[in-house]
Design a protein around this nucleic acid. Structure first.
Lengths: 352, 352
DNA sequence: GGTTTTGGTTAGAGCGCTCTAAGTCGCGAG
DNA sequence: CTCGCGACTTAGAGCGCTCTAACCAAAACC
């Protein structure tokens, strides 16, 4: 019965380097050299060792290797929320480069809670990862600073002053401006914002929104509905808006998840988008463009963000150098959730 | 300059258990007992050790611990494709339970390529994870069998016979039947299928589709368009369908990503869904319900699949027992991408 | 009062690897 | 014939922890 055979073979202790050495008739050190592809090993020995390892089904023990060499070739990545494709796509970028370079990834997800994020980070540090990438972390700055004191850190999407780390940032103010410009050019004035609460980018986008509205003398029409970057927050916002006597003509959602929740809520209520209400998202997650009524949104170069973060991290691991901040520019992707407001003809035609 | 201080402190060797023992004036063994929350340590010593550890900023070294204890408290998870929210959501389920139980996750993504998947798996095994969860793996059965001989394995979404592993499966035939039933009840006969190629579930869904069509005496109307579970495949399928003289009245997509790509392509061509063509997906990924024209699809209980997989794995790690297969039932979620075919009145009214 | 028992503590031998320092060997040069 | 040298190989000391066995009081038993 082959099944049994497999099971019992599992019980047997895994072969070690010593076993391979004995099998090949050489010393353990030589096996180590061969495994690490070091030079100055004769071809003869090399093939003999390889064959022995093959025969025994030898698999190096990464724990022992890391313990002895004090290098793990592993970097940790902490994501705010696995359920949000935005983060999965950034992780995808990191993963792609990591696998090219032979680095391992240890992923941790915070589930949008600072506490879970902290424990995930603690675990990564116990594994002595060579470095950590924090994507839109929710932790307090002091926790981040403490981590940065132990290990090289690169942060994506959030800036924290006074921390020894590199940063990959998106120009949030610019992204927000693109949105307002677009909506105002279409003739919108009553533009509401469903914000992202305290999550990374949330305060920045909200601030830029308020500033932009003020600069356009639309401060009186500004309206911020609290959210938290989730689809649920979008659905709630829809309910809140619909409960009022009058809808705004456009809504700028803090991210695409919120926009999606919003669109769902509006649809259920029979509100036509974009005829009755325009909606703009932020992130350009992969599904944003897929739907019949596809979402106008701000694109963030997610894969590039991930790759860049890892590049910075590895460079930081090897070279002590001053902190680096890389600012990437977002772009606006106009699709079909935005249009001129219904009764805007008179007011906005001159502008157009 | 606080920055400098942090940087230089990083260079200092991390404190070890011996350092803590010295600081607390006890033996290393006692520190170990305290760290592992073992009983039979006096309250006095316990607090003294804790304080010393705190003072030094001691952080246990997971490598050393695992090496000595030969248990990693870590399980590996290999996902077919991080870009597909379906997998992210399964990972979310695993992650949730893992963090409840104090288990660590080592995530690896295969990027829909058997080769990358194999190397990711090899790495996990070098880390001596306590077990591995393979989600819709693309590897050859023999590679999987080899892994299962080394470590407990649970597979999700794919069955491989003769392998020592547990399985979490969805009744694909049933899911597919739900789709055909729904479409035929609406009056559809020309139902095409964009399949998932060789990816997990692909052949099963295709097979069930063909069988179902035959059973309904619609074999003549069956039409399979090759795909691969990606959005791009959906877009290609749209192009292919549009190039023909006549559209089918309904399309069953192998998963939601394909459906999404399909919808995008149809929209660009001005085809009205569901008026001119009905579309059904599979998976019910989180964004499937979010859009104005929301996707009719087959729901898979993703979070539960993830949790269940981890439960099985941990049980398998602790207890030697025969293989288990857990079959979960999918359900149909009817939304707004399906409707009666246009000219179906005459034919289908009797049925309805 | 001596001997178990028991709760608390510790020394020390590994876990499987890396890496340094110290060989060994053959060979051309002195 | 000895020495030096380069190429190759190896012994052995850790890396930071766990875990077994042993130890030592103080309490419990007869």
């Amino acid at each position: 019965m082959p099944g049994r055979g497999l099971t019992s073979s599992r019980a047997r202790r895994a072969p070690t380097m010593d076993d391979v050495a004995r099998e090949a008739g050489v010393s353990r050190a030589l096996v180590s050299l061969v495994m690490r592809e070091q030079p100055n090993v004769s071809e003869d020995r090399r093939t003999r060792v390889r064959a022995a390892a093959e025969r025994l089904g030898y698999r190096p023990n990464a724990m022992a290797r890391s313990l002895a060499s004090r290098r793990t070739k592993t970097v940790g990545v902490i994501l705010d929320d696995l359920a949000n494709p935005f983060f999965a796509e950034i992780a995808g970028g990191v993963e792609g480069l990591a696998s090219e370079l032979g680095y391992q990834l240890l992923l941790g997800a915070g589930g949008r809670q600072a506490r879970r994020e902290r424990t995930a980070l603690a675990t990564l540090l116990e594994y002595r990862v060579d470095g950590v990438i924090l994507v839109s972390p929710r932790m307090r700055s002091r926790d981040i600073a403490a981590a940065a004191a132990e290990v090289p850190v690169v942060m994506v999407g959030r800036h924290v002053r006074g921390v020894q780390a590199d940063f990959v940032l998106i120009d949030e103010a610019h992204g927000t401006e693109l949105v307002l410009e677009h909506l105002v050019a279409l003739g919108h004035e009553a533009i509401a914002h469903v914000d992202g609460g305290k999550g990374a980018g949330g305060p920045q986008r909200r601030g830029a929104y308020l500033r932009g509205m003020r600069a356009r003398r639309l401060a009186g029409r500004a309206r911020v509905i609290p959210g938290d970057f989730t689809e649920e927050a979008g659905a709630n916002a829809a309910r809140e808006l619909l409960a009022e006597p009058e809808l705004p003509t456009a809504v700028f959602a803090a991210n695409d998840m919120v926009a999606a929740g919003l669109l769902g809520g509006l649809d259920r209520a029979g509100v036509q988008v974009p005829d009755e209400l325009s909606v703009v998202g932020y992130d350009n997650i992969s599904i944003a463009h897929l739907v019949n009524v596809s979402l106008t949104t701000v694109d963030q170069p997610r894969t590039e963000m991930g790759r860049l973060a890892l590049e910075l991290l590895l460079d930081r691991i090897d070279n002590r150098r001053p902190n680096l901040v890389r600012m990437l520019e977002p772009t606006l992707v106009v699709r079909s959730t935005t249009a001129a407001p219904r009764a805007a003809g008179a007011l906005s035609l001159p502008a157009a």
